[in-house]
């Protein structure tokens, strides 16, 4: 008997799917199956991976965070204003925005817990608030001009096979490793799964619900802010209408990565695979050259349907 724990099935499916898609591309197009393409997937999607990792914590706990895209935009705007208009050094700006972002998430978490509100509504409000604040600060796109910024964004090294490892890739991999450790090797990680499994039972087992919920949303907002900083490395600007809908991409990646939307089941590594699957579809379409890039959305939509159907099957098949 193949000893595959049923909880690993969605993750296994996700991994197989990624390698299948990558394999198809590699067979069809010259240069597709290279480490360069693989690492470009990482560096192009670094900000999404970071945001999706935060989203994974939230979804594992049975919640949702719709404020992610807006927080990314707000981060970009605040960074560009502080650096370009107020001449702050980026090394001062980064901690300031990260602390601010984390506090924003903690407040949302506290409201969700203490007022027993739906995460959907609270983070929707957070989304409007962050997006609105970004637009109030500046409706125009503000360029970021700072020597240090250019250096950080240009930093990186080449692996064999033209594989570029830049600042974004490094940050996103560090975040991923840290998230895997937190989720699977700390007591806090256990609490996240516990709350997602059954918050009522978790409370009866002595899990501090308030602290856990607040931390989860603080982490998500911290990572969204970090994703915002990484995003500004691509654009060298802050714009209030940037990253619209990124929260939905992140949710899609988490679900395709095998995490159950109702919480309690899933893996950080699956989220990486989820983002990479979305990236590989995008890459395939750009290699093909004739397809509209909107096909990416259609494929993602179909994949989402399939994965939700798969989850339903697994949930129903569970003995009670």
């Amino acid at each position: 008997m193949l000893k595959l724990n049923p909880k690993f099935i969605p993750l296994a499916v996700t991994c197989c799917l990624f390698f299948l898609l990558f394999g198809i591309g590699a067979v069809q197009f010259e240069g597709f199956g290279s480490s360069r393409v693989l690492f470009n997937l990482l560096s192009d999607n670094a900000f999404l991976i970071i945001a999706a990792v935060g989203m994974t914590f939230v979804i594992l706990s049975g919640g949702i965070d719709l404020s992610v895209g807006a927080v990314i935009a707000l981060t970009g705007v605040v960074c560009s204003v502080l650096i370009s208009q107020y001449q702050w050094h980026p090394l001062v700006v980064f901690p300031v925005v990260l602390i601010g972002g984390t506090a924003f998430g903690a407040i949302m978490g506290a409201i969700i817990h203490y007022y027993k509100m739906q995460p959907f509504i609270v983070t929707l409000a957070g989304m409007f608030f962050a997006r609105g604040l970004a637009s109030v600060i500046s409706e125009e796109s503000i360029p970021i001009e700072h020597e240090f910024y250019n250096q950080v964004a240009a930093f990186g090294f080449m692996l064999p096979g033209d594989a570029w490892v830049g600042t974004s890739t490094i940050i996103c991999l560090l975040v991923l490793v840290a998230a895997i450790i937190v989720a699977h090797y700390t007591r806090f990680g256990g609490r996240v799964y516990a709350v997602g499994g059954d918050a009522n039972s978790a409370a009866l087992m002595g899990i501090p619900l308030a602290q856990t919920t607040i931390r989860i949303y603080a982490i998500s907002a911290f990572l969204a802010t970090l994703a915002g900083i990484v995003y500004s490395f691509y654009t060298f600007s802050g714009y209030s209408l940037a990253a619209v809908g990124v929260e939905l991409d992140a949710i899609a990646a988490v679900v395709i990565g095998g995490t159950l939307l109702t919480g309690g089941y899933g893996y950080m590594f699956g989220t990486l695979m989820g983002v990479l699957i979305m990236g590989v579809v995008q890459t395939y379409i750009s290699f093909d050259g004739t397809l509209s890039s909107w096909w990416t959305k259609i494929v993602i939509g179909l994949l989402l349907f399939c994965f939700i159907a798969l989850q339903q099957l697994l949930v129903r098949g569970k003995p009670r």
């Binding site: 256990g190 799964y193 499994g197 059954d198 039972s201 009866l204 087992m205 309690g264 569970k318």
Partner: peptide, 10 residues
């Protein structure tokens, strides 16, 4: 009141 999604040991 235990958590069905976690392992027995967890």
């Amino acid at each position: 009141n235990l958590l069905p999604n976690l392992t027995v040991a967890q």
